[in-house]
Computed example of a mutant assay.
Amino acid sequence: MPYSHLNDYPADIRERASRVRLACFDVDGTLTDGRLTFDSEGRELKSFHVHDGLGLVMLRKVGITVALVTARASAVAERRAAELGIQAFTAVSDKLACVRSLAETHAVSLDEVAFMGDDLPDLKVMPHVGLSIAPANAHRWVSERVHWRSARAGGDGAVREACDLLLAAQGHAERLLAEALPTGVQA
């Protein structure tokens, strides 16, 4: 059975997603709910949704380069990226320059880049990439200026929705689902 949700996406979004070879994600407000929590020792705490992590791993599995690009210095984000086998760029003052450098390093045009973010530091990147995405709870100034918005909020599966879009548009969703099912069960 073909991936049934692919037609839920507008044709222009499917086309943009089909070209993506580099997917970059903001952290706070995108991979997390945007809250900054510190313990009594001043150590930063963050909660990540496990669905988002698996989505990022699946992107890697199909050959899409994945990177976290965040303006905050964050050992927690660096650790999560290491667990997922992806790169993290933290304390980034110019996200567009970072994304351009990543694209150049991986021989990818900006038209083949997806970027997901939720607030003002992400806006500089959005008009330059092939697919800009915001979580459902992104600041209005951002959500009004992206190609596509997830139905879920940052930190609550929004990144997985973006990953699923990319996987479906590039024809990988059915195979990944079939690989996950027990032998003899059809997708």
Rank of each mutant, 00 (worst) to 15 (best):
A97N: 09
S18N: 02
E174H: 09
S93P: 05
D39P: 10
G34K: 00
N7P: 05
L56R: 02
L167W: 07
A180Y: 08
R175E: 06
L56M: 13
S93L: 14
R160A: 08
R100K: 11
S132M: 06
D94W: 03
R160I: 07
G171H: 05
G85N: 10
M1S: 14
Y9L: 07
P121F: 02
H5R: 15
E41N: 13
L166H: 07
H51L: 15
V57I: 14
K95H: 07
V76Q: 10
S40N: 15
A151R: 15
P121T: 06
R21T: 03
E41C: 13
L36W: 14
L123V: 00
R140I: 14
L181W: 08
L31D: 06
G85S: 09
A73D: 15
I64P: 07
K95C: 03
F89C: 03
S143D: 01
G85I: 01
A151Y: 02
A114S: 11
H172Q: 09
V146H: 05
D111W: 06
A17I: 00
A77W: 02
S150P: 00
F48V: 00
L54T: 03
L56H: 01
Q170G: 01
L166C: 11
R152N: 11
A138I: 12
R160E: 04
A75E: 14
A97S: 14
D12A: 15
S93Y: 10
F115M: 06
V99T: 07
L31E: 02
E15T: 15
A138P: 10
L6D: 00
L165D: 05
L96D: 02
A153S: 14
V142C: 10
L176D: 00
R35S: 15
E15H: 15
F89R: 11
T70Y: 03
R19N: 08
S40R: 15
D122L: 11
R149L: 13
T183M: 12
D122R: 01
P121L: 06
R145D: 04
A114M: 15
R160W: 09
D26S: 00
K124L: 12
L96V: 04
F89M: 07
I86A: 01
R145H: 13
D122W: 05
G157L: 05
R175C: 00
F38Y: 15
V66T: 04
E174W: 08
T90C: 09
D26A: 01
R21D: 01
A17T: 00
T37V: 15
V20G: 05
K95T: 04
P182T: 04
A103G: 08
L96G: 08
A169N: 03
H139E: 13
D26Y: 00
L84T: 01
G55E: 02
E179S: 12
